[in-house]
Design a protein around this nucleic acid. Structure first.
Lengths: 331, 331
DNA sequence: TCGAAAAATGTTATCGATACCAATTGGAGA
DNA sequence: TCTCCAATTGGTATCGATAACATTTTTCGA
């Protein structure tokens, strides 16, 4: 069985020392071409794959980055995750994914499982942290990038945007387009709730009244939840002429329900989503949504971590990448 | 800095041996309650997290399972991935995700990165493997579960279903409902192509003619691609009265395009998807689709791997979980 | 042609936890 | 009280690769 092959076996077969094998594989330029060829031939022929645990233990470099997400199912973080994975892959790092499941108690045990592997970095995506988890991260000394948010007191590095600003911007934006009875449909996470709070503050200061409906749905945000919530909103007294949804999937649900009831979008009901997923631009009418550059978040986070891991200094470890409201047909 | 803490430090602080610390953490029942309490107190207080690379190296147990997916973006495998992650997590294993990107050449380097970590198992999801990759997996001796397919010659274990049967079943199903001019819209992966081939065979034997349009779209399958492809199909001479899409997202695109053109679904155009994602049931009309139990695939794969890792025998290492056509409003 | 610096290769010790085996303790039965 | 066995606890070697240092070979200018 070749799983018991070690550098020493390869060394013996190639007639060199184990160290030369290691060098031929990891620092090819430190080895003469002849040696390199000889070693690589044996490696090819035997199918040898070095044991990363042994190497990582000695060099304390795991070539591993962990990402913590609230959920794998929701499409919201997909773009970030994809970009993170692609960027890390290109630099020779693997991505390990942990799902915190919006459950605060799981977070600590997940963090433990992650720190145990001594990854070169940890990317936190849209999660809140317990004080214990925070302390543990800090104590571990592992580079951390928080994303999808902007906190005044980051653990370490940060790539995000202001959820408060999104809330107030969307409120103003709807107001300027003549909508006067907006409602909010959102997930229950703290980021969504901060957007909501900011939306309500802005609504008050614009004189939109204080009875704006806020509907929270349990994660993940789904099309079905969007449909059901619009139905519920329409049943309330007072009426609604616009909805700001905390994900494009919810917004799609709202549009499907509106269509099923013969409510015209955007004339009778304005719909704004969040995420600008692929389908947003291709709906009928196309979805007006808050665009967040997930690719940039993922790529930047990857770069920050790798820079740190390889001893370079990160120039601007706290980055606000902002957002934009993409005006399409739905509002 | 606590990241340099080792079992020996904990041992010293607790006044016991390193071995006892290790046991207190991994086999609490092998240690007297007094010792356990003493060790745990010190661990708590110091925030010690053992180095998994060291432990894994010695015990050759990584508590890690790797999954290889063609893409992280497509929603098709999400349910499988989520279930896999949840099941593994419950059993104390972490999931590492690798994206093969439908690119055969990347597959080998990805496999290398995975095998390097000596995971307890590898789950292959909807990918084809090069002969070299196959050989390498076999040689590594790591338990492998192939999913989302049924091959006569699996590498090791398998949890899947017959893509051929899906193709012919959907064809028959459409025929029985009176559709006579079906078309296929699918991704370019081999599984989809096998479904297509089987659909065409069945169509021929049902006398549906040999000019059935087959439209391939590059991965990932998106709503936009569905819209564009239907538009293209409608422009062809001959006409189309039903479409079988290789993902629900494509099917949604087809439905959006049909609606935009005033084509009535299912009267003028039947639409069948694949995956039964959450939104399928909540569309208007609800989407008729091929349901594949992703949760069961993920959970079974997790169980197979962990059983192997912990020395148990897997009774039925090749499992066909089948599929079902969920009849809703769209066809 | 010689010698010093640079490049290539080898040797040894080590990363941190745990398997394996030895030693010690405690308690039941004679 | 003493013996013996089971339950705990400790000591040592080891997993496999590589950092650090040592040694050999090559290169190249004077």
């Amino acid at each position: 069985m070749s799983q018991t092959l070690t550098v020493h076996d390869i060394a013996r077969l190639a007639g060199v020392s184990a160290m030369t094998v290691s060098r031929a594989l990891n620092h090819p330029d430190k080895v003469s071409p002849a040696m390199r060829a000889k070693v690589q031939a044996v490696v090819q022929q035997t199918g040898f794959v070095p044991n990363g645990m042994a190497g990582g233990l000695r060099s304390s470099k795991a070539k591993l980055v962990a990402a913590v997400l609230p959920t794998l199912v929701g499409p919201v973080f997909q773009e970030t995750t994809r970009a993170l994975n692609a960027a890390l892959d290109a630099m020779g790092y693997q991505l390990m994914i942990g799902q915190s499941g919006y459950d605060v108690s799981r977070e600590d045990s997940l963090l433990d499982a992650i720190i145990r592997r001594r990854p070169d970095g940890i990317v936190l995506t849209g999660i809140m942290h317990t004080p214990a988890g925070r302390r543990q991260l800090l104590a571990s000394g592992i580079p951390v990038v928080e994303t999808w948010d902007l906190t005044p007191t980051p653990i370490d590095m940060l790539v995000g945007f202001s959820n408060e600003e999104i809330g107030s911007s969307v409120c103003t934006w709807l107001y300027q387009r003549g909508y006067r009875r907006p409602a909010l449909i959102s997930g229950q996470d703290t980021r969504a709730q901060r957007r909501n709070a900011s939306f309500l503050r802005q609504a008050r200061s614009l004189g939109l009244g204080t009875d704006i409906p806020v509907c929270l749905t349990p994660p993940p945000t789904t099309l079905g939840a969007g449909r059901a919530t619009l139905a519920e909103l329409l049943a309330r007294p007072g009426g609604v002429d616009a909805v700001f949804c905390s994900s494009d999937m919810l917004a799609l649900g709202v549009m499907v329900e509106a269509q099923a009831r013969g409510i015209r979008v955007p004339d009778q009901l304005g719909v704004v989503g969040l995420g600008d997923l692929e389908f947003a631009a291709n709906l009928e009418p196309a979805l007006t949504t808050v665009r967040i550059d997930g690719t940039r978040i993922g790529e930047t986070a990857a770069r920050y971590i790798v820079d740190r891991a390889e001893g370079r200094t990160v120039e601007q470890p706290i980055l606000d990448i902002g957002f934009s409201i993409i005006e399409r047909g739905s509002a």
